[in-house]
Amino acid sequence: MSRTMEGPNPMPAPVQAAYAYCEAVTGGQARNFAYGIRLLPAGKRQAMSALYAFSRRVDDIGDGTLAPETKHVRLEDTRALLDRIRKGDVEDDDTDPVAVALADAAQRYPLPLDGLDELIDGVLMDVRGASYETWDDLKVYCRCVAGAIGRLSLAVFGTQPGAPGAERAPEYADTLGLALQLTNILRDVAEDAAGGRVYLPADDLAKFGCTEGFGTGRPPAGSDFAGLVHYEVRRARALFTEGYRLLPMLDRRSGACVAAMAGIYRRLLDRIERDPWAVLRGRVSLPGHEKAYVAVRGLSGLDARVIGRQGHGGRP
């Protein structure tokens, strides 16, 4: 039975505090994610915050300044913690608030915790300095670090009873995660290059003459960098279109959450498409007021209806 803050099975104070910690982490660090989950009812918002806080921990290890060997140890330690959560070995009074919150969320929702193992595997690819020859190769990485989070989120949202095609909901959630991650990759081209990382597939770079020097964030003279960006934008839009098929399967507030997050990334994609060179000048982002506007549209159902038509082949 679900535990709540009130009622016959009240949520223990340490669990409430653990969720409050995770919500503070989410509100303070999630640039786009937080705008969507604000639209959820309290229980789902808490569970999503626990997922975010755990995922943030994994990402921070991968992005930190520790030596690769130390990162590997820290990530495997985090995997061991995940195993404890999976086995129900985390008590409410554990000193790790993220573990407490995620363990409680796993009791309340059918979370496929193996998805967080996939996230750790994806971050280990970063630690090893993996590169990707083809889009099929990059998809493996994107499924680990984003598609898996989409499937975990779906376990919190649930699908509406009797929703047509609901058996494909995990597939659509996974695909929407790929769309968000590819948008992230485009947005962060300069930042990643400064850190010695190139995520775009090598055969795409070669197709547009961008191979030499791309790791420095400076495409070679004569390359068609704008063509490369537009090519990847089209790929991301196709992924969004497929992933949007998830929306009609969700309840109103869960659909609003997904529509808000997708809407923010769609607008980022629009900006990148209009000015491909902007990604080399710095991180492309939306101002807070525009994110809030997208969230309001999501809650009102406006973006959900537009996205739903796109997901079925229509046009807004």
Rank of each mutant, 00 (worst) to 15 (best):
V189Y: 00
D224C: 08
P248I: 01
L239S: 13
S131A: 07
V73H: 09
Q310A: 05
G313F: 04
A226S: 13
L186W: 05
Y199R: 01
L280M: 09
E212H: 05
A166V: 00
Y132F: 07
I120P: 00
V145I: 08
A106M: 12
L280A: 10
A99G: 06
G28I: 11
E232I: 02
Q46W: 13
G311A: 07
A169L: 04
R57P: 02
L39K: 12
A278K: 02
K291T: 11
R237L: 10
E212K: 13
S131M: 00
R108D: 15
A304N: 02
V284G: 08
V140P: 00
D60W: 09
P110S: 15
L81I: 08
K87W: 09
R45E: 14
A155W: 14
R235Q: 08
A103V: 06
F214S: 01
G213D: 03
G88K: 13
D204A: 10
P97K: 04
H230R: 14
L82Q: 01
D60M: 11
D77W: 04
E167Y: 03
R271S: 11
R143P: 00
A13T: 11
E191L: 10
E212W: 03
A106L: 13
S153D: 12
A20G: 12
E232S: 07
A103E: 06
G150S: 12
E212D: 11
G195W: 00
G288F: 08
R45G: 15
P112T: 13
A193T: 04
A53F: 03
M249Q: 09
V229M: 04
F157C: 11
L119I: 02
P316V: 00
D60N: 14
T65Q: 14
A226W: 02
L119A: 03
E273M: 01
K71H: 08
D77N: 12
R297Y: 00
G243P: 06
L178V: 11
R168E: 13
R187D: 06
G217Q: 01
D136Q: 10
L40S: 12
D303N: 11
Y244M: 15
F240M: 08
K207W: 03
A24Y: 01
L286D: 04
A166P: 02
L250R: 01
I37R: 14
E273S: 08
D93H: 14
I120Q: 00
G88E: 14
K71S: 06
G195A: 08
L239R: 15
S254G: 14
L228W: 00
L299I: 12
V233Q: 01
P12A: 12
V25E: 10
R237Y: 09
T175Q: 13
C210I: 05
G215P: 04
V100Q: 06
D204H: 02
R197M: 01
R281S: 12
V58C: 03
A103D: 05
G62E: 06
G62I: 08
V258S: 08
G313L: 02
G28W: 12
R283G: 02
H312F: 09
F240T: 06
L154C: 12
R168C: 09
L113G: 11
